[in-house]
């Protein structure tokens, strides 16, 4: 196969793994926005909490836990952290203006980052697994098993989430709340409870992203900052509250970034991805998959 084709395939794989990474973060952010109408600026920091949880679990003295069990534990811990944040901070401000909510979630972000700085210092922590070190080579393309796991996991999670919101009572309630919160309250759906469950699921998804991605990167207090902005861009691109749209927008973002930095320049990849974001909003203000509504 010509080298140009091999390189192109490799760039596509890079874009898909990057997109899968963004998608896991975006799914959670989009879910929260859909149900609670809240932009959680601390979502990337919950991802960071997941990274440090993974670090702690991989370095338990005297015990070596299997990686799949560690992934489950990270998801549980981050879901619990999300639940705690929802109860303490989000729940009291659920019906307040977006300004109050923005300041509150930004506050959580600052607190979590500084807590991590105090507890773990600013030194990056490494969380390698046996899969991140295993390299598969096909047609001169080298890729770690960890990246393949991420690709498979994100598809599985997307399908599982689809099933959950369509076939379970809680999932149906989440969809109902995202469509008409007031009507749900009238018919007796416990909206705060649904918001709480959504927050836990979304935080668990951030934890899953951390457990899968951190072995390829480094864990540090600021690891989630830019990620929240990227995920937010994908949520808006996909159409606010459109979970499926946000999912595909995340992959689009990943592919654009990978192809641009692969063929043109890495330095301006964020400029290009956010430029694309502005351009699409200019043409379709409702996002790629959103519907135009009139007042």
């Amino acid at each position: 196969m010509p080298i140009e084709v091999v390189i192109f395939i490799e760039h596509i794989i890079n874009g898909l793994t990057l997109g899968a990474f963004y998608a896991l973060i975006t799914l959670g952010l989009s879910l929260i926005f859909g149900v609670a109408r809240l932009v959680n600026f601390a979502h990337g920091d919950i991802f960071m909490v997941g990274g440090y949880t993974l670090f702690l679990l991989l370095n338990l003295s005297g015990i070596t836990l299997p990686y799949p069990l560690i992934v489950v534990l990270v998801v549980v811990v981050t879901a619990l952290v999300g639940l705690l944040i929802e109860r303490v901070v989000i729940h009291p401000i659920l019906n307040r203006s977006w300004r109050v909510q923005a300041v509150a979630t930004l506050g959580i972000s600052i607190v979590l980052q500084n807590l991590a700085l105090i507890l773990f210092t600013s030194d990056p922590k490494q969380t390698p697994t046996i899969y991140s070190r295993q390299i598969i080579e096909i047609m001169d393309i080298r890729i770690s098993v960890q990246r393949l796991i991420i690709l498979v996991a994100v598809i599985f999670i997307f399908l599982a989430l689809q099933w959950f919101v369509k076939h379970t009572q809680t999932g149906k309630a989440m969809r109902a709340v995202s469509q008409n919160r007031e009507m749900c309250q009238i018919v007796g759906i416990d909206v705060p409870r649904i918001a709480m469950i959504t927050f836990a699921i979304s935080s668990g998804l951030a934890g899953l992203a951390a457990a899968l991605m951190s072995p390829l990167f480094s864990v540090m207090p600021t690891m989630g900052s830019l990620l929240t902005l990227k995920a937010l861009a994908a949520v808006i691109l996909g159409g606010l509250g459109q979970v499926n749209g946000a999912f595909f927008a995340a992959f689009l973002l990943g592919l654009v970034e990978a192809l641009f930095s692969g063929y043109v320049s890495y330095a301006y990849r964020d400029v290009v991805s956010f430029g694309l974001f502005v351009l699409i909003l200019f043409v379709r203000p409702q996002g790629l998959f959103g519907r135009r509504v009139g007042l």
Partner: peptide, 11 residues
């Protein structure tokens, strides 16, 4: 703080 260098490394 860049996390993913793969695209540039592939190039």
């Amino acid at each position: 703080g860049t996390a993913d260098y793969r695209s540039a490394l592939t190039r």
